[in-house]
Design a protein around this nucleic acid. Structure first.
Lengths: 241, 241
DNA sequence: CATGCCGCCATGTGATCACAATTTTGCGCC
DNA sequence: GGCGCAAAATTGTGATCACATGGCGGCATG
């Protein structure tokens, strides 16, 4: 469930890199439920490898804050709180707005065309209620924009933030089920065509904030933020008050 | 040299956590020269542990971008370029200014007193040309401020940035040797006492930018940015032009 | 029937080993 | 003396094993 099948065996990368990529994708797309058991041996068996590469991948994901090391030395998707969620969104806004602005000098017509294609894919995914494709294309859109200038120190930081909100985005999106229709990407694309950096900043910030405003309030109302952890065992969150 | 001696054996943490903390400190304080050989077995021997904890610590530092995985699968301090340096500084500014602003509601008189103490330590370190204590106290100052609200998603991102600039700050500081006397921390402290969030943002940004402006130009002029890597072997950078 | 205790099983940590790839070294040749 | 090639040493990767810790269920007891 967490890993969905063994790895391909014709991959030049090291096993730990393949395991890492698989787990990272599953976390980013929200395929791993918060609270789901993530054991080294279990994942190793699912992926058809030994414990070694899994250990290293988990360690790396802990470093990226996609996973959290608990006191009993197990790892889990970190529980979400309102405060942490707002922290993550605030960090996304300042980092991604700046990253977008810094990418502007490197924006070409080819890049804009690529982003337009991603936008089409995003809208198609929304129409089909295909969550995986939606968040995947959405990530591709943002990532392609921020990476226009080549490798940047911003990218890994932003990816870390996406990994941290991913699991909860999915849960939230499910509850509001396709209610996310505000298309701020077209505003961003318009700003890109005009090479208007300030408008781009505003569009990116609005994209994050508007998408999140719905989700955040939904999370608060439906208390879908996460389960309550009692002595290391995960139980369904009780409806308080 | 890289690890400076074996670990204490009365530490409740896991070995890999101790190794990680040691290496992280050495990188942050710039004790590890860019290009210095970092081998698993070598570090393990220095620290008096087996290869296992070292492997996991290195993996984690790679994830934090403090180290870089090369094509030949060895790790190194990533080489610095002007572009990357400016990227890192830009990221530091937006993240730390925002983190400081978000910490403001949690600022207490006790925290201010603690920051003042750190400021004294910083100035003492500058006076004594004690680089380790200088950057250590400097980090403590910033970290205490940003962490006022408790654990925040900003902190690990900021720490990653510090780890990336650490090794080169030291090299640069050595060349300009104590020329860093602009005391923006007192401005930050004044803003904190007045609970003036905007002034705090400005002071933090000025602290980073001014400190870096000197260093960056020095780096460019003296070409102290890093060594040129040829086929994985490190050689002194040639003076170009 | 509820509760506390004990033993078993699962899990993370760390060490060691085997192996392939890469780097270094040393030797012979030009 | 410089250069190229082959052997040896070094290194990262992955697997397996031993061990301590903690979680869990079964069992006896009140």
């Amino acid at each position: 469930m967490a890993a969905t099948g063994p790895l391909a065996d014709d991959d030049a990368r090291t096993l730990h890199q393949q395991v890492l990529a698989r787990l990272r994708e599953n976390i980013l797309l929200g395929r791993i439920e918060p609270g789901q058991a993530l054991t080294i041996r279990g994942l190793a068996a699912e992926l058809g490898v030994s414990a070694m590469p899994v250990r290293e991948a988990l360690r790396q994901l802990v470093a990226e804050r996609a996973l959290e090391l608990m006191d009993n030395r197990r790892v889990r998707i970190p529980p979400m709180t309102i405060e942490r969620f707002e922290d993550l969104i605030a960090a996304r806004i300042v980092l991604e707005a700046e990253a977008a602005a810094r990418a502007m000098p490197y924006v070409t017509d080819a890049l804009i065309a690529r982003l337009e294609a991603e936008d089409v894919a995003i809208n198609a995914a929304v129409a089909e209620r295909d969550y995986d494709r939606w968040i995947g294309a959405n990530y591709a859109f943002h990532s392609a924009l921020y990476g226009a200038a080549g490798q940047s120190a911003f990218l890994p930081l932003i990816e870390s933030l996406w990994l941290q909100v991913g699991p909860f985005l999915r849960r939230a999106i499910r509850t509001i089920s396709g209610h996310y229709t505000v298309d701020r990407h077209s505003e961003a694309l318009a700003a890109l065509r005009r090479r208007d950096t300030m408008a781009l900043r505003i569009a990116i910030e609005a994209d994050i904030r508007d998408g999140i405003a719905h989700i955040g309030s939904t999370l608060i109302r439906s208390e879908a933020l996460g389960a309550t952890v009692v002595q290391g065992t995960l139980r369904p969150s009780t409806s308080s008050g």
